[in-house]
Amino acid sequence: MVSERCWTAKYFDGRRPAPLWVRLRLDEGALCLHPGGQRLRLEALPAQLECLAGRPRLLLLDGASLEIEAEHAGAFTQAWQAGLAPPGRVQRCIASWRGAVAALLLLIASLLWLDQWGLPRLAEQLAQRLSHQTEDRLGQWVMSQLQKDLLKTPADGEPRWRSWRAEQLQLLQGLEPELMLRLSLYQPNPRKLMNAFALPGGHIVVLQPLFEALSEDELLAVLAHEVGHVKHRHGLQGLARSVGLGVVAALTVSDYSSVAASFAVGLRGLSYSRDAEAEADAYAHALLRRMGKSPALLGQALRHLEALHAGGTSPSWLSSHPATEARVQAAEQAARQ
């Protein structure tokens, strides 16, 4: 049935930019061509038919090609695929809406899986596999970068700090003997910056304005929160996650827009960071209780800090930390338990 049909096609010989109208017939496994009345039988055809863009086309071995008339494109493709070469899986997927929607669902599922399970698990594994030495070196490197600007002036010599640090380290040594903690005090470069943070490898940096503003109990709560970051190795995990996110974004979006990719990474990274903060808070609640203090101290410290900042807030999806109010409530709830 197929072999009885004749098709009109444009023949490009690959030597001149001029099309030649020919007739062709599909015989079993081969194809007969009559360019300009001459009859050819082309046995050794590449099996592949390009039917992209609704213009089915056959590439011949000598660099020539045949293009089927647009009106009969569909019928020819069918005849070709039935007789000679069925379309590949990807081709079939592209040809139908069902395939495309299935691809979309699969894409959403795999992105969700990567985001919720794959990347965090990968980061965790990496954090576990990496030796403490490597982590320490990474921390040292981050520190050296920070010392160029933000942390230009160390303030470790201050007597009140020294005694406080010795006391806390001793206390923590008893509670978390396996953690290697290092505490340092710095006068930050924007002088009023009020913060404390933990780096990979157990470096905890306290900025002097914070040290001066908070009471001893509040400082302890902040310290407990930072120890939480060290305990969960958030620095390293954050790094691994952001690299993983970057790779996924590069795969999905950057062929189309690298700007969109970097925004996606940035926003998702901030949300990972909020999760890590909540985790560190939860750790701090438990640690404070083990020290015989109330978890509510963390809430008190956060309130105090917010009052000192005396400012508005940015929308929560653009923030690296969860909203203060939520954190305070979590601390107070932990205290009630």
């Binding site: 925004f263 901030l270 900042h309 400012g311 508005g312 807030t313 940015s314 653009l318 923030s319 690296s320």
Partner: peptide, 20 residues
Amino acid sequence: APMFEGRADDKGGHIVLGSM
């Protein structure tokens, strides 16, 4: 700016918003 003032710990947010 008044929305963000004084939120020194939220520099990430500023930078993202500004560059956006």
